[in-house]
Amino acid sequence: MSAPSTAPADINATAARWVVRVHGDAQGLNDADILALTEWLEASDAHHAAFDQAERTWFAVTSPNLTSEITPETSAALETNKTTEVGVVVAFEANKARRKPAAFRDLGVWKPAVAAAALVFAIGVGWYMQSPVPWTDYVAPHDASRTVTLADGSTLHLNRDTRVRVALGAERLVQVDSGEVAFEVAHDPSKPFRVTAGEVEVRDIGTTFNMLRDAEHLTISVESGEVEVTEKDNPDTRLSAGDQIRVDERSGARTRVRIDPALVRSWQRGQAVFDQRPLGEAVAELNRYVDTPLRVADDAAGLKLTAVIPLDSEALIVDALQAYLPIDAKPYPDRIELHRRP
């Protein structure tokens, strides 16, 4: 992040306006707004700090238990400017020097507008309340992987056909919707790093691990450090380097094994490593790297694959499968079928 190029008062006012847009606008943010907010937050640590403080204040002053006085001048300004976030920000600028929490009675004005004004008035007071922040979507297409560096210094390596959502606030939150992600988490004990995928949550404070989510299973592999895996109706599980856990998202069944930590992110080196994986599961993963979908014929469904498959091209993948297993590949216009050899 770079140093802020505007005065603190301007940063605070901008943060307040963004918080009003996020929490006070019934229509919410569109994609362009989310991108603009993300760019503004990532431009400076001061922007992040101002937004966090403004958001905490927003939730504090909208508490239903908060009642006291505001000045007649502020009340009049709010009534005049109650429909615009700019108006409510300006309304409290004149009173900011008082530096005390601004609460309110029922003024007959739009409550979010009052809160928006109050949050600028109260910036610097030090309220704390954990609150949601905007989510940002990151997608890797079918034909390319993608690397995303977050504002906290963590890095997400998205494999092909992957979709995740990220929110950075009091906690660092990542939601894996589909695909595969390798995480390099920046160490910050004050802001836990949590990754969710369906009913499973992984909590981490600074390590490197990989998460693969397909249609039926979630696989978590740890390269270094430790993570804690939490799942509904199952005890918490702590994983360290070389641990891998595989969760059936339909039944909740878990399988835990030891692996070579050096193989955790093999896909980034152009390899897929399988150890006694049912061929259907392996093919589902390999389909990420081919243009023509692979299909396992019924006569080959019982085979298991132990192999290191090169991912450089569709032809190499098919050749490797035929080399490691007693199968033949039969091409069709819309698929490649894998049949067991007679």
Rank of each mutant, 00 (worst) to 15 (best):
M1V: 13
A3C: 07
S5Y: 10
T6D: 14
D10A: 14
N12A: 11
R17I: 11
R17T: 08
H23V: 03
L29H: 04
D31T: 14
A32T: 12
L35G: 12
T38E: 14
A43F: 05
A49W: 04
E55G: 13
W58C: 06
L66I: 11
E73N: 13
A76D: 09
E79M: 07
T83L: 14
G87A: 05
F92S: 11
E93V: 05
A102R: 10
W127E: 14
Y128E: 14
P132W: 06
H142V: 03
D152W: 09
G153S: 07
S154R: 08
H157G: 00
R165T: 00
V166D: 02
L168C: 03
E171N: 15
D177H: 02
D188V: 12
V195G: 02
V200I: 10
V202K: 05
G206H: 04
N210H: 11
V222T: 01
V227N: 00
T230E: 10
E231P: 01
P235T: 04
D236G: 12
S251A: 13
A253N: 12
A253Q: 13
I259M: 04
V264E: 04
R269T: 14
G270A: 07
G270P: 05
A284S: 14
L294F: 04
L294Q: 02
A300D: 01
L305T: 02
A307P: 09
L316H: 15
V318H: 00
D319L: 09
L321Y: 00
A323C: 06
Y324A: 15
A329D: 00
A329S: 00
A329G: 04
I336D: 01
H339I: 08
H339Y: 14
R340P: 08
P342W: 08
